[in-house]
Amino acid sequence: MKKIYYLLILSLFFIQCKKSEQKVDDNGKVNDSISNNKNLNISILIDLSDRIDPEKYPNHSMEYYQRDLEYIKAIKTGFIDHIKGKKVIQLDDQMQIFFNPEPSDPEVNNLAKQLKVSFDKNTSKENIKMVDEKYSTLPTKIYQSAITDKQYVGSDIWGFFKSKVKDYCVKEKHRNILFILTDGYMFHKDSKFTEDGKTSYLTPELVKSLKLNSSDFKDKMNDKVLGFIKANDDLNNLEVIVLGINPEKGNPFEGDVIKTYWENWLSEMKVKKYQVKDADLPTNLEPVIQKIISGK
């Protein structure tokens, strides 16, 4: 009898340990996604349109392409801090950079390949140092090439969400975070569609034509059912952070219109979490980026 009692106590002990490992959500159900958050899959989608051109859109406090570069460094730092905080045997993390469409310069595409990095149980300190160095130097070469080339063809963000985001940016048993570096406008000649009041693009000219230049712009958007055309469904395993919203001057509500377009679109596609941030100075956004990656 004592033996049976001992086995029962032992079994209850192991069951309790198992529960503590699994974690539970607010409804008392096992939530495996909590443990999956230990593995990061970070993607960075860069808008290489003319928004980065320092001649066309100068900013004396800090050029917009330089802000992008600092945002990328902050993302890299957050990712590496995450790696250093894990035991080597637990490593299953990756980070990569994307463009859509791909630049015509093959060297830029080669640089992007070098920026696709992953860590597993075989990772060494040298590997971490190498990734740190790559993300501190190679993105600068990408932006310099695009600015020198001046062949700005727009950025097909809508098309990326339609055809590529699930394959490229979502990985099972990982916390998937997509950072998008863009001014918030969206346009590409191969992804220009209209469905009633909704579009696959957003330009300053479109905002003007829709007369979204007053405080009641949300009412106008609701009445006319304005917004982005839904490009995907059930992106509930993806977090999206949009950095760099930079509205054209002249309409005090332009930035709010851009954010509303994005927020409604991401919500409609059932993105798990999302934030849309202005093109603020990196010193202000760095702690925000770090907090997002740490999950705190």
Rank of each mutant, 00 (worst) to 15 (best):
H60G: 13
Y64K: 08
K76Y: 01
D68Q: 05
S118H: 13
F98T: 01
E63I: 06
P106F: 08
A112W: 08
F99N: 12
I75W: 06
K113S: 13
I97S: 02
P106G: 00
R67E: 05
G78E: 05
D92A: 09
Y64I: 09
L91T: 10
S104N: 15
G78H: 07
M95Y: 13
P106D: 05
S118P: 03
E107I: 11
Q90A: 11
K116A: 02
A112Q: 14
K87W: 05
N110A: 12
P101D: 02
V117P: 04
S104I: 12
L111A: 07
I80Y: 05
G85Q: 08
V117S: 10
H82A: 10
K113F: 09
G85P: 07
D81C: 06
A74L: 00
N110Y: 12
S118W: 07
S61K: 12
E70M: 04
I83V: 14
Q96N: 11
N122E: 07
I80N: 03
D93W: 13
I72H: 05
H60I: 10
V88A: 11
Y64A: 06
K76W: 01
D105T: 13
N109G: 15
K86E: 12
P101K: 04
L115M: 12
Q96H: 10
P101E: 00
G85W: 02
Q114C: 05
K87E: 11
F79Y: 15
I72T: 06
S104K: 15
E63S: 11
Y71M: 00
I75G: 07
V88I: 15
